[in-house]
Design a protein around this nucleic acid. Structure first.
Lengths: 173, 173
DNA sequence: ATGTCTGCAAAGCTTTTGCACTGAT
DNA sequence: ATCAGTGCAAAAGCTTTGCAGACAT
């Protein structure tokens, strides 16, 4: 009944459990840091960077060193819980594997990325096989301009033109 | 008649011309560096990094500073001749816009990227529109394992198992 | 003559590494 | 008691920036 309001607790618990198994299977230790980091990671609504994660941990009164964050996020990637995304900014971003079966729309002007679903594309990719290659996951990023920026640029361009005309008028006086 | 053997000289000349126009239109200067860099860029069969480009320029007896390379490649991206690709390695990679309408298959083990064509996907994306967003280009990268690496890993795992069994046998002597 | 372009060197950021201490097993 | 994990600081890589001199316009 309340399943719609709940934040998919089952899903997240399953991920924690999967991480547990991954750690056991690979002779990795179950440290408090790792579980606190995983908690924070699961709480991010979408993309995040190591820096974001570091700040979140600080906010949570559980500061962790940068090296540990890199190390742990690597484990999470290896455990197939996270994947890394190249957003075009300097810093690498990460996202939950289970959460993101979306297309990334990246605005080249403001740099923001929006996620959109496309069942057709998903179905196609799930069926698609490539010769001499085993797919683990995929990422489709679409680059362009979001409408907000397009409108703003248009307005700025218009103002620029007006100024240019003014200057020409003045210089020919 | 020889059009198949020729390296699409028309296409490349058109690109040089397009760059020319871009420079004029934006009040940029036509320096020898820029044209030599463009030549080298067009000669790359696929992805390349700033480092690759630098080495190629050196080979060509036309060394150029790193800052100039970044500056010029930025221009080429802005002129829509190149686009940048995030390969997951530290350094950004670039590729020709006209050349790459391919899917990138990236092997997570050896790190190599292979390009494959997929007319179905291309047709789909060419028709696809997104709400409140103007598409300029897109990139589909598939992550996984290439067969070469898969075979090698399998063999290594088998040897590992054999050694583990040996050790157990010895310890129980 | 003007103002952009280039090259050099230094700075900036993200990520990696080395080492000693801590703590899970 | 081990030996992997953590934190710190330093190093390493890639990219950007500031400035002086060179050069296309």
């Amino acid at each position: 009944m309340r399943s719609k309001k709940a934040k998919e607790p089952q899903g997240d618990e399953a991920i924690v459990e999967a991480f547990n198994e991954y750690l056991s299977a690979n002779n990795k230790r179950k440290t408090p840091e790792r579980y606190r980091i995983l908690d924070k990671v699961l709480a991010f609504p979408k993309l995040f960077t190591i820096e974001d994660l570091k700040l979140a941990m600080n906010d949570d009164k559980f500061p962790v060193s940068t090296s540990t964050l890199y190390y742990t996020v690597d484990l999470l990637v290896d455990a197939n819980i996270l994947r890394s995304i190249n957003t075009g900014n300097q810093a690498l971003a990460f996202e939950r594997v289970d959460q993101v079966k979306s297309i990334h729309l990246k605005c080249e002007v403001c740099g923001k990325t929006k996620l959109v679903k496309d069942p057709n594309f998903m179905a196609y990719m799930n069926a698609r096989r490539f010769a001499a290659f085993t797919t683990r996951y995929y990422n489709l990023t679409v680059y362009g301009t979001c409408n907000d920026c397009a409108r703003r640029l248009k307005r700025e361009q218009r103002e620029k033109n007006i100024n240019a005309i003014k200057q020409i008028k003045e210089s020919t006086k």
